[in-house]
Nucleic acid binder design. Structure first.
Lengths: 333, 333
DNA sequence: CTAAATAATGTACACGTGTACATTTTGATG
DNA sequence: CATCAAAATGTACACGTGTACATTATTTAG
């Protein structure tokens, strides 16, 4: 019950050379005469031969495989992240295993187990937090661990996270500069490290100035939650005229419900700030002022660290930038 | 320069059993006593051992790897597709290699070469069209080929495409039922098989009824193209009051420019139909009537065929369904 | 042309795993 | 306890590749 595939042996026979000559032809820097290389390449092309990287990688140190572990892949921000990540890793000759951790809590562990089974060089965790035991299992199998937007510290892993602490101050300033007087914060109920950090820094900045903030949370980090939060915000109590949403999806929901159900004009009646700079934030219907993370830089940092030989982890704080659009009454300076 | 990893040998030593016993413990249906199995599992957990699937797969027929080949992964429809596909394949114990073919034409070929190198069981091509030579190379390496939304026929490959031919008739009827009198078609300039097919079937249906259709195309299949097309549609000639857009992204652009720049009300002044049913189509700001493909079914069909032992290809036409929302004046019956 | 140096090829083994076959252990039956 | 069947374990090899080492062919230096 063997699978039918073209092997180096087949090419060797077809080209009338030895099997090692085939191997050497496809090994950069190996010693083969121009003539036999020619023969081998021709036969390989004819037979449709490609080096079996699975076999190669059980001999050499590197498998050339990187695992991307993420949930909610269909979400705009995640999808962009994955797109850039795959591009960056591919341009370095790596190949990416996309492991979808939908829902289940245990699934991050399962995902990392898969990463081990396929002897991934690196595992980039974009959602969920691995516990120490599985992290150790990764490392004892020579797998480097990168955590994106995770607060929890894991020994020897690389942590990449946006500068959430400075976000609150910037957002608050922008809202105040826009002339907002009743400030609100819209967040999901998800206990994700990064959105909690944004919330915390916003509340802290407000407290430092003695400004009251109405905090309104609901559901998951989705557009639909934005609708709910918006409904709650505008139908009860004093209407806020400035909202910081921890996510663009939530912001879009808040904006839509503000306009459609409450007849509010943006930015005349309401200023909104989001986070992520998803494609829709730039759409005419929203023109949302939001924070952008340099996804390319994050991906590049992942790759660079992944290629390093060292073992020690680290922490990279990525600066974020406020992208000014029309959802603020007067652009902040 | 060996990589440090835990092997079955290590586990065997640690558990005081033979290496094969370890192998058998992780091979369903193999004969191991409960006692040694216990020992092995305990040691494996302690050492963080996971079976090396790369090594396993060069002995057995199946690698357990499936390749998803796509460009524009950050796009809503693609992202959803990938999300569902990975879920479906993962639930069957497979692992997915995401290969991003951004831009370059040759890159589909490169992607398939990667698929061969990693001895993928199946390669699902979501964008770009492979030529016959590389398709043959895949098959001589035992890789099954699935083409999604590709018109070109490839020997022994599975072709899955939506029922584009019936789309035109349905869309036209819906627009006419909504009372539209000046009909337009908005499309990108991309020569993608599926959107060309939709355009053709729409024009054909209109011609069969003697209805004139203004055809307006521009750029890539993006939101921004929608803006351009919309600008062109509403600033020159008779204003259409019904538009079929071959893609939701284009539809969103058309809707936005219609409202923001031309003050048109939807659906009072303009009825719009899209295709794909991306998440944004359901957002309050759009409420776009659009066609939905059963992505889960498509993915499942992929998986099923992938698991089949047979070699022969086939063609599956997937029915599409019109999702009625508020972008049509009067809902079609 | 010979000797030495270099390049090219061949041989043998290693990587980590699964499995056919042979062997040993266990358990059941008389 | 003896006998036999079944279960468990061990041995040896295979999967497709890379590479150290030995060997042969080719080039260079003298």
């Amino acid at each position: 019950m063997k699978r039918n595939q073209v092997t180096a042996q087949d090419v060797a026979r077809h080209a009338g050379v030895s099997r090692v000559s085939v191997s050497r032809t496809f090994t950069p820097g190996a010693s083969v005469s121009a003539k036999t290389r020619e023969l081998v390449l021709k036969s390989a092309a004819e037979l449709g031969y490609q080096v079996n990287h699975l076999a190669r990688s059980l001999h050499s140190a590197n498998s050339g495989i990187v695992a991307l572990i993420a949930s909610e892949v269909e979400t705009p921000h995640r999808a962009e992240m994955l797109s850039v990540m795959t591009e960056v890793f591919q341009s370095a000759g790596k190949v990416t295993l996309l492991i979808n951790t939908n829902g289940s809590d245990a699934s991050v562990k399962d995902a990392l187990m898969q990463a081990i089974r396929f002897r991934t060089e690196t595992a980039v965790v974009l959602s969920g937090t691995p516990d120490q035991s599985i992290a150790e299992a990764c490392q004892s199998n020579g797998i480097k661990l990168v955590l994106i937007n995770r607060a929890d510290e894991i020994e020897n892993a690389l942590h990449i996270l946006p500068d959430n602490d400075s976000v609150g101050e910037i957002a608050l300033n922008a809202l105040l500069n826009a002339g907002c007087e009743t400030i609100a914060l819209a967040n999901s109920d998800t206990q994700t490290a990064s959105i909690l950090a944004r919330e915390r820094s916003f509340l802290k900045a407000a407290q430092a100035r003695g400004i009251a903030v109405r905090r309104c949370t609901s559901g998951l980090t989705t557009y639909e939650s934005g609708l709910e939060i918006g409904t709650d915000l505008f139908s009860r109590g004093t209407r806020p005229d400035g909202v910081f949403c921890t996510t663009d999806l939530i912001a879009c929901g808040v904006m839509d419900v503000a306009r459609q159900r409450f007849g509010l004009q943006i930015p005349q009646d309401l200023s909104v700030i989001g986070f992520d700079d998803i494609a829709q934030a730039g759409w005419e219907a929203y023109q949302l002022t939001t924070f952008r993370q340099p996804i390319e830089k994050i991906s590049q940092a992942c790759l660079d660290w992944s290629l390093e030989s060292g073992e020690e982890g680290g922490k990279i704080i990525i600066p974020v930038r406020l992208v000014l659009r029309e959802s603020l009454r007067r652009p902040a300076l």
